[in-house]
Amino acid sequence: MSASTAFLVAATGIALFSVMDAVMKGLVLALGVYNVMLWRSMGNVALGAIAWRVVGMRRPSRRALLLHLVRGAVTCAMALLFFWGLARVPMAQAIALSYIAPILALVLAAWWLGERVSTRTIGAMVAASLGILTIFAGQARAVLGPEAFEGALAVLASAVLYAVNLILTRLQSLAARPAETACVQSLVILVLLAAAAPWLAAVPPASAILPLAGAALLAFASMMLLSWAYAHGEAGYLAMTEYTSFIYAVMLGYFVFGEIVSAYTLVGAAVIVSACIVAARRRDIAARTVEQAA
């Protein structure tokens, strides 16, 4: 399987995830982050169980189960922080702040998985970093609400966890099939959230059922695509697809929430997209397995 195919599949997964972000932001503003995560997780478990049944259920290996548990816990904390912050800052700013994750993932992939980082990828990473700094300069001039600082901190904390999550995705995808990953990981998240249900859970209004179902479906489809992509490509290389989410954040933020981006943000986005194109042209993918990296 070619590296470019894995890159394209990962980019498609990011596109679906970006649409889900917009749906989730609206839901969190209406219902609160806990209840949105709780009810969406129920849909994720149901969809994952159906897919797992279709491809054939089998008992997860001990290694796969451990990875499901660890990644489920990391993903739960990561998502709660991100969506809480997303409700308090513009989508473009939240996505820009989250770009620390792919940069950290490049370093973690080289250290943890033994993956080789080419000169081309390093150059793309530096260019993307300059784009991010440009975005930060523009966002510093924006007038935000009183909770924007806390929201930005939450997104940054989520980004650190997301970098770890990207590496766990690579390890997990080599130990389990996407359907198993989608079902078991979603179940882990649901169990963790359900622990607080007696105090925090509330039945959503009927008007929220369809958006919750849509968010669950988008999250499920994105997870399946990303799991497949990370099983066929290097984590550090595929992490570059994360940068494409900024374009979606700009469009969705404007058309759905009326959020205006500055010229600084647009220039930064152009630099980041250019870096993604450079990274996507890379051909020297090292064929490494977890066993070789261990």
Score class of each variant (00 low, 15 high):
S4R: 15
L8K: 02
T12H: 03
A22I: 07
V28A: 06
V33G: 06
M42P: 00
G48S: 13
R59C: 07
S61A: 12
R63Y: 00
R63I: 05
R63Q: 12
H68G: 03
F83C: 05
W84T: 15
V89R: 03
A96P: 04
A96D: 03
I100E: 01
L104F: 06
L113M: 11
T119H: 07
R120C: 01
I122S: 13
A127Y: 04
L130G: 13
L130N: 06
I132P: 02
L133T: 10
E150Y: 11
G151S: 12
A152Q: 13
A157I: 06
V160L: 15
L161M: 11
V164R: 02
L171H: 01
Q172H: 11
A175R: 10
R177M: 09
E180K: 01
V184T: 10
V184N: 11
V184W: 13
V191L: 15
A196D: 04
W199D: 03
I209S: 09
L212K: 08
A213L: 15
A213S: 13
A215R: 07
A216D: 08
Y230W: 12
A235I: 06
F246V: 12
V256P: 00
E259C: 07
S262G: 15
A263Y: 05
V271G: 06
C276F: 11
A280K: 05
Q292P: 02
Q292W: 07
